[in-house]
Amino acid sequence: AVYRIHLTHRQDDNNPARSAAVQPATLIMKVIDSSPGNRAVFKPLHEREVLFYNEIAPVLDLASVPKCYYAHFDEEAGKGTILLEDAGKPTHKGGLQKDGFETLTASQAVLAMTELGRFHGRSIALSSKLPRDLSRPLDRSIEEIRAAFPSFKKTWTPLLGEEVIGRYERALEAYEKVWLVQKDTFVQGLVHGDYRLGNIIFSAEDGQRDNVPDRDGDDLDNAHAFESGVKTSVARGYQEATTSNGDSQPGTVAKSPKGLVTPGIPTTSNDTTINGNASPNNHPNTPTKLFTFKHVDWQTVSRGPVLFDVAYLLSMSITTETRRGCEFDLVHAWYTACREAAGAGNDQFFLSADLNISPCVREISAACVAVVLVSVTTMNNFRAPEVPMRAVAGKLRTVSEMLVDWRSFE
């Protein structure tokens, strides 16, 4: 269960410096389920999240990660508690709506990818200062996925049809041949592990919903105002150099796979080159209405192929139409931010000097296979009377379309 606690502060005449402005006004309290049946599952997730907040987040120093004020696991009661900085009231509702799943706008997705690239880049640059033992906590074995597939197929074939189920079957084959064989050779860093809308909180700083639309991709004016607000807000938290990383190699843009098109969305963040060389005036000082942007729920953070997170967001949080319209921009936003963050302030550039977008596209394509199979193990016996099956089926179809567009089987 997750609670927001509104705080009031006692007047402290002896210490006027501790004004209300520098004290939190709200806290988030996460309480981990302590029922015996769930304890074995939740305890490692709780420990993983606490490790992230206590030991990893301070090293990464990202403004987009909420502060953790307190964490404790009571072994006897089997109960874990985490107190976090409030990530704000989301400008999106998140989760399942009446007619489908809520998705990110194109502009929100660009921001999310940029911040994700920053997280990955910093984790690569600061790798030696982070805990070594961070293997994926809940890695699904091929046996588990194979075992789950028959009931997944039985549940969803009537709603998805043979063609879509066929994509899942091919993904099952490709999991061993493509993903498991290659994943350890892909760009390695910290992986959020569950990087989708719901774990990315966009919110107005004053806590209002501010009429930011919940529709995907169709109110770009509002989204751009929103984007510029987030940029200002995020920029306040970053003091990194935005100068060149010294890489003079010409960037090579991958030949776009089928479905990847140069986008039509205008963004104000295109002032960096493909080499990650930023233009001098990257962070606008013009104050705009501020928005906050937080990544939450670090229960599945691990070391691994970072482009898994990119594939996860592209598959799970954007409509097919929005994704097809801007996915090259999204990958480019991730790539640029990752290179900048990996290079900033470090003598050694940890990303391979010859890494360009082309291998990134290949790694995302392979990661799609792993991402869609998350659906199989989590939705194999899905039955929930309160949730429209048709909406979930629409989501599963959207997820499967990544496999085709990104030619994940080749």
Binding site: V2, Y3, R4, I5, I28, V31, A87
Partner: peptide
């Protein structure tokens, strides 16, 4: 545990139940 229960238990009214998932 509901927010109402927590508020009553603590004698406050500043806790709301939210979902970050």
């Amino acid at each position: 545990i509901t927010a109402e229960w927590l508020n009553a238990k603590l004698g406050i009214n500043t806790i709301e139940h939210i979902s970050l998932q």
